[in-house]
Design a protein around this nucleic acid. Structure first.
Lengths: 224, 224
DNA sequence: GCCTGTGAACCTTTTCACAGCA
DNA sequence: TGCTGTGAAAAGGTTCACAGGC
């Protein structure tokens, strides 16, 4: 089984694990017992060498000549990603985006439940969004504590992003998903991921402008 | 001025240009005439060496001992990103997410106007969302043509993503932003960027689980 | 024969460090 | 002196290609 055991998993690999996870769920629903790196690659939209390399960082979970046991690999990846446990989330900002996120049934369901929705605008506080009621900012620290919230989602305008981040962090949050189009500064023990719609569109426009394509874009193979 | 002239801009650099763009807008609003790579780095949340390298791919637009002229650099980056022109977009999927995106005033405004909202559900068609009316799928090809749409935004459930992508592409779209949690296959002359909330949360959960932080996360420097 | 696991080659990206110009 | 522009070094990520077990 080579040197394997406890090597540090590269960031690029971590970023692809959710992709494999989703692909394996697919396999499972189609009652496949095993998958090859080729099949998994196709489902995940990457190439087979990458799949094998990535999975090898987790351990030697495949069988030569056969492939990977779907259930088993699914279990291992879930464990690595922490999807066997619950991650209560709070959304700050109950505007269009915040409300949509609160209602969104696409959080891979597993684990990431929205348990709080916060906004400071007095016309928002008290409103109902799905099963949540909008609560005022000053309740944040208590909320995080009482509901064991571990992830904060920023869905405010850019100008509010930094103060909101500060508030989340001083409430004890150490993982932040930022939808506001602004860079936020955080201490080194806090993770931030950002999702920026304008940025994505601008990248598309760059390539469209030149008749080029972004990425390997080798995600081909459709007949037509 | 070195070898510069028409070197190909690396993808990693392209992905950061929107960040610089936004930072420069900030500078402009604060009436700064010039900005150094250090300042720009701080605003964009990257390091100064990267800023200089990135900007050097565009040309030698800085002045040694001084920095970069804000207006001028802003103009150059706008041009590179194609923000001097209009990019009409269509959103497919008028659920929570699609509706939120249609209303979202955070597309960096410039250029990316949503000019169509499409959904196939008969209870959605005809509804009004902001200033848009939901139109049925079969109007897509005409719409793309008549309104010169260049970017398609997929905001459907995962199961619809591939057929919707196919429809967009056969309508002539060559840039796709995919919010559905599914991999879509496209021919090599089409760009796809994806935004996946579940993926982002799972990456956060991976690092939180281990008490680690993703990325360089050196975006520090806040007093406290 | 089939498919994994993995060194080694290769390519991209980041960082360093400093020459060169204002 | 200050800050850019850029070769060169280092790090990180991807792909190749094949040994090795099923």
């Amino acid at each position: 089984m080579g040197h394997n055991g406890r090597r540090r998993i590269p960031e690029a690999t971590v970023a692809r694990l959710p992709l494999y996870y989703r692909s394996l769920i697919d396999c499972n629903e189609r009652d496949l017992a095993t998958v090859s790196s080729d099949q998994l690659a196709e489902l995940a939209g990457v190439n087979a060498a990458k799949v094998r390399k990535d999975l090898s960082y987790l351990g030697s979970y495949g069988t030569r000549g056969v492939g990977y046991d779907v259930e088993y690999l699914l279990h291992e990846i879930s464990r690595e990603l922490g999807l066997t446990q619950d991650w209560p989330c709070v959304i700050v900002g109950a505007g269009n985006l915040g409300a949509a996120l609160a209602n969104y049934r696409g959080f891979g369901a597993r684990g990431f439940r929205i348990v709080g929705l916060v906004d400071d605008a007095s016309d928002k506080v008290g409103q109902t969004v799905g099963e949540l009621t909008v609560e005022p900012m000053h309740t944040l620290a208590n909320m995080v504590n009482e509901r064991s919230i571990s992830i904060g989602i920023i869905a405010t305008p850019a100008s509010a992003a930094q103060p909101v981040a500060d508030a989340l962090i001083s409430a004890g949050i150490r993982s932040v998903l930022n939808f506001a189009p602004a860079v936020i500064s955080v201490p080194p023990n806090v993770s931030v991921r950002k999702v920026d719609l304008a940025t994505e569109l601008q990248i598309l426009s760059f390539y469209q402008l030149r008749g080029l394509t972004s990425g390997p874009a080798l995600v081909v193979d459709r007949p037509a």
